[in-house]
Computed example of a mutant assay.
Amino acid sequence: MAIKITEECINCGACEPECPNNAIYEGGVEWAIADGTSVKGDFTLIDGTVVDAAQRNAPIAVDTYYIVPTKCTECQGFHEEPQCAAVCPVDCCVPDEMYRETVEELLAKKERMH
């Protein structure tokens, strides 16, 4: 499953540079599938919506850092554990129960993005 950042986030920014998928954004910042990935053209989001990979999307959170679930692979294929959770000083990077995925699904997502 994807990782989410809880409202306990202190906005330290330690997580953002650790994400190999560029799935973490500062609160209030627009995001795109193409950011930090090799994706071009149409891309299907988790909810089935098809978007242009370069399309800028509304921020998921305004006041704290956030993780785009469509881009999060829990660092599968890159690291042994999610790096955001490993570096978070307040342990606010936790599994997102809304987005359950198998290791195989997470690895396939990684392959689609890189």
Rank of each mutant, 00 (worst) to 15 (best):
T37L: 03
V50M: 00
I46C: 01
S38V: 06
D47G: 11
K40G: 00
E26G: 08
N57I: 11
R56L: 12
D52F: 08
V39Q: 05
T44A: 10
F43S: 02
V62L: 05
A54I: 09
T64M: 00
Y25F: 15
E30N: 14
I46N: 07
T44K: 12
V50K: 12
V39G: 00
W31F: 12
T49W: 01
G41A: 02
I33M: 01
V62M: 09
Y65R: 12
A32E: 09
I24F: 08
I33L: 06
G27V: 07
T44F: 00
A58I: 11
A34E: 06
W31I: 13
G41R: 04
I33G: 00
T37R: 05
Y65F: 11
A58R: 15
G48P: 10
A34M: 14
N21H: 12
D42L: 09
E26C: 03
T44P: 02
N21F: 09
Q55I: 04
K40E: 00
T49D: 01
E26F: 06
D63L: 14
A34P: 03
T64Q: 02
G36E: 03
A32K: 07
E30A: 10
N57P: 01
A54L: 14
A53H: 04
G41Q: 03
A32D: 09
N22D: 09
I24P: 03
N57G: 04
A54K: 08
A54S: 14
A23V: 13
F43E: 02
D42I: 05
A23I: 14
R56K: 13
A58F: 11
A34D: 04
I46L: 10
Q55N: 10
T64K: 01
K40P: 00
I24V: 14
T44E: 11
V51S: 07
W31H: 08
W31P: 01
V62I: 09
K40T: 01
G48V: 09
A54D: 04
W31N: 04
P59V: 14
R56M: 13
V29E: 10
D47H: 13
V51G: 05
Y66D: 02
V51R: 14
A54E: 11
D35H: 13
D63I: 12
D35W: 07
Y65I: 11
F43C: 05
L45D: 04
R56D: 01
A58K: 14
T49C: 06
A23L: 07
A61K: 14
T64D: 03
V51Q: 08
V50F: 02
P20I: 15
P20E: 07
R56G: 04
V39T: 05
F43Y: 10
E26R: 13
A61R: 13
Y65S: 08
K40M: 02
N21Y: 13
D52G: 06
V62G: 05
I24R: 07
G48C: 07
A53R: 06
Y25I: 15
N57T: 08
A54Y: 10
E26W: 02
D52M: 13
S38P: 02
D35Q: 12
E26A: 11
D63M: 12
T49M: 04
I33E: 01
N57K: 15
A34Y: 08
D47V: 13
G41M: 02
P59M: 15
A34N: 08
Q55D: 09
T37K: 04
D35C: 12
A61E: 13
I24H: 06
S38W: 08
E30T: 15
N22Q: 14
P20Y: 15
P59G: 11
